[in-house]
Design a protein around this nucleic acid. Structure first.
Lengths: 209, 209
DNA sequence: TAGTGTGAAATCTTTCACAGCA
DNA sequence: TGCTGTGAAAGATTTCACACTA
């Protein structure tokens, strides 16, 4: 939809550059070099420059990048120029923790609905929101123009929830359940603690990365 | 340390295959084809076969893989043949949720310590464990042979905790804080909600995957 | 001088396509 | 017949190295 297509690997790093820039900005840094960003994001400087080149960014040779302008460019590239409605389904320990997550700062992601199927959880308050019956979800999503769904349910029901989210028109899903979701066309990202631990476990024996 | 070196991309998928096999085993399936696994893990069958070939696995042509044997091979490759001690530092909402995580099933990862710096949190009980003062951490780690540290602290102190973990000999870190950690040689994996949402946000506008 | 922007090389990953075997 | 195992091709990503310029 936008000019040049940015490689997946680059897209995955843009949020890290952005975060680093926000910290630098808070520290009052106006100009930043690829080398500086690279150190903060743990990659090499050539990669930073190549990544930024996809944004059509103009740094200044011999000087570096204007950090506030670069921040703006990255936000534009990521589409962080408008707000996104987010719902969380499954308000157990993890779902509640995610609902309370405060790392959004000045981000554009707004949690607008919390859902659960357990009568004991429905009606309880988490942060500013009251947990609603998951049966209200479809109507709420339509009404609030929700675009992103976070699944934090038990694995057994995650697929069902994903299907339902997709039927409601949600095209982006962040899945914390221990399942690989089958979806029609939604974009799914999966986060799973035991997978991560197993990967770490491997490199504990086979050290290099 | 083990025979052949397995590509990173493959290592990252092995836990998914393993999980799929465990489900299949629970359903009573004895023989599994690359095609079957592929469907469950959302990848293509050639990739499954290539991945499994790094384990030196012998499937049976025309038939498939013996699912229990394949499970054993993957567990061996991942080093899941012994137990791992894990500590969690930062027992806020997220840390507590992780401590209560039950997805380990018959896994080999055991949470053996919970730490926090807040006097109000220290002493409280989460699951079976009592949250201890982070000052006890170094001694506890040495005593319990802890190999993996999970950081769920505020971003501001995450680096300090990481440095400390490394000094205690912990070589694997799972970082849930919104920071890129600088470490000497530890292996770090990072999980961050706002990064994931930003990536999803990008693909919401630039649909393809 | 110090740091960007980028072709071209090196490396890693995925996919194809098919020989080979139970 | 049906599915594995794998070379070889295609594609993606990373890194190098250097021309260029404020």
């Amino acid at each position: 939809m936008n000019s040049v297509t940015i490689p997946k690997a680059t897209v995955a790093r843009l949020p890290l550059y952005l975060h680093a820039l926000e910290i630098l900005a808070a520290e009052g840094t106006c100009t930043v070099s690829s080398e500086m960003l690279a150190r903060r994001v743990n990659v090499n400087a050539a990669k930073v420059r190549k990544d930024l080149s996809f944004l059509g960014t103009h740094g200044v040779r011999g000087v570096g990048y204007d950090s506030s302008e670069l921040g703006t460019r990255i936000r534009e590239a990521l589409g962080l120029t408008r707000d996104f409605g987010v719902v969380i389904v499954g308000i157990g320990n993890l779902g509640a923790a995610l609902a309370n997550y405060d790392g959004f700062g000045e981000q554009r992601f707004h949690i607008v609905g919390l859902y659960d199927a357990d009568p004991g959880t429905i009606g309880s308050k988490v942060g500013d929101l009251v947990v609603r019956d998951v049966r209200h979800m479809p109507a709420d999503i339509a009404e609030n123009n929700v675009e992103i769904g976070i699944i934090a349910t038990p694995a057994a029901v995650a697929q069902e929830v994903a299907t339902q989210l997709e039927q409601c028109g949600v095209r982006s899903i962040l899945n914390f359940a221990q399942t690989v979701l089958q979806v029609e066309q939604a974009d799914v990202r999966r986060v799973d603690l035991s997978t991560e631990l197993q990967i770490l476990g491997y490199y504990l024996r086979h050290d290099q990365s």
